[in-house]
Design a binder for these strands. Sequence first.
DNA 1: AATATTCACTTGCAAAATAAAAGTGAAAGG
DNA 2: CCTTTCACTTTTATTTTGCAAGTGAATATT
Lengths: 143, 143
Amino acid sequence: MKRKELKGWNGCPVRYAAGIFADKWCFVILRDVLLHGKRYYGEFQSSEEGISSNILAARLTHLEAEGMLTRHTDRRKKSRVFYLPTAKARALLPAFLEMMVWSTVHDSNTEAPPSFAAAFRDDPKGTVAWYEAEIDRVNATLT
Amino acid sequence: MKRKELKGWNGCPVRYAAGIFADKWCFVILRDVLLHGKRYYGEFQSSEEGISSNILAARLTHLEAEGMLTRHTDRRKKSRVFYLPTAKARALLPAFLEMMVWSTVHDSNTEAPPSFAAAFRDDPKGTVAWYEAEIDRVNATLT
DNA sequence: AATATTCACTTGCAAAATAAAAGTGAAAGG
DNA sequence: CCTTTCACTTTTATTTTGCAAGTGAATATT
């Protein structure tokens, strides 16, 4: 890995990521869909951060346009709508988990149990796999 | 790792991270300071994304307040100011590198060389160490 | 069948944040 | 001195956000 490689690319992977999810509400929505099993519009709305309805709608549209979520209507109750994380969104899990480990270390008021950072450090791939399995489990109840 | 652990903490590590850097301009500034060796106000200002001067000042103040940067005046030329990334900021490297790998996979126009994702997957710790060393090298020219 | 309720959004408006451009003031150079 | 550099500020126009109140389709209730 030589110097040249560092110089060659002027910041774009970070800028690409920034354009898709570098926003408080996108962070919260992605957390809810990837880590908290939330799928329905109303579930996102009721997260404790209290996102406004218009902003939530705008962000869901944005994330759908960026290929992070797919929108579906519940087949037994057409007035209900749910959003599923795409493979692209799920592929963010490693980055999110790293961020979360960082938060647990640097936020003195973290609510994450110490076991989380330990488990991730111990077996990052296994931890990602566990969250992936949870996502599949939740999805299975909807399709 | 049981179900209970997932349920216990309602989203806070992500929210903490969101409060500190979930913003386009914070992403860019952190990229520049962690990955591109930028330290001076004028260097941040001249990044190709074109951040406005008032916004840049606001973000630098914010990142300093959050313990991500420290502000210093150049001792040989007092009109020059530079910002150094703290250990807290540097500890974000793994998360940033994971994000960048994600971008190289999902952005068809990525400017990152394929060797980057390969190198990171091959030896994540070594890759982080390499960037840490670059940060130290740049810092050494300033202190 | 008529009415109420749930649900996923929209709308309207005030307040806050942002962008662009010009300005300021200290410090260094000539 | 006089000019330039540098790190911000200020100003003003525009955009985005947040809140509260709708809206309309689909279900549940009477």
